[in-house]
């Protein structure tokens, strides 16, 4: 840890940096463990200043906006997010796996014959809020590419979110079939 980096870490935490310095610090904080440790130290040292902020009561609607944000987040599959580095419980590990599109891709290829992958999670997520789906299925194309996500909710509703345009011939309608996995 050079003195230059130590100074950069302090200024990064204080919020002094902009332009190139900010970009350099951002790159270091993502990749350099020594720099990360220095940043963590400065954050801990200066945290007391946050406690001096006079509290401002949020409007009643802020929490419902946050909840909407969470729903949007869980309805969108995040392709580039890696699995979290620390996985404290099997359930969290499963939830991370659940959200990971690359897992579905790999699983889809492993079961080469499957054009439809069904994951049964009934009860697993039952303690979550009502609008959390109890069952999520990713529909794969013939080429094993994810084409759509089906979310089924505890109240019996289901929604289909196409990930790409699904052409429907005129005069016909889409049908979704669920089949028991006999394997």
């Amino acid at each position: 840890m050079t003195p230059e980096h130590e100074r950069l870490a302090a200024e990064y935490v204080i919020g002094l940096l902009d332009g190139d310095d900010q970009r350099i610090a951002q790159r270091l904080v993502e990749n350099d463990p020594g720099f990360q440790a220095a940043v963590a130290q400065w954050q801990a040292r200066l945290a007391e200043l946050d406690a001096t902020a006079p509290p401002v009561l949020p409007g009643a609607e802020l929490w419902s906006r946050i909840e909407t944000g969470l729903d949007e987040e869980s309805a969108t599959l995040r392709v580039e997010d890696p699995a979290p580095p620390v996985i404290p419980s099997p359930r969290a590990a499963f939830a991370a796996l659940w959200r990971s599109l690359s897992f579905w891709r790999v699983a889809g290829i492993a079961g080469a014959f499957a054009s439809l992958l069904l994951a049964l999670g009934v009860g697993l997520l039952a303690t979550r809020a009502v609008r959390e789906p109890v069952l999520i299925a990713v529909l794969l194309t013939e080429q094993n590419r994810p084409a759509a996500v089906v979310n089924a909710f505890a109240d019996g509703n289901a929604e289909l979110i196409p990930l790409e345009a699904i052409p429907v011939p005129p005069g016909q309608a889409l049908e979704i079939w669920t089949l028991w996995d006999r394997a």
Binding site: D50, A53, P55, V56, L57, P58, R128
Partner: peptide, 25 residues
């Protein structure tokens, strides 16, 4: 981290007004 929304809400109840104060500054 395990997907417990009530826990997230408890963080909100405990910290949101201080957080808003920090963000307002």
């Amino acid at each position: 981290a395990r997907g417990d929304r009530i826990a997230l809400r408890s963080i909100y109840d405990a910290e949101a007004s201080r957080m808003l104060g920090v963000a307002m500054r």
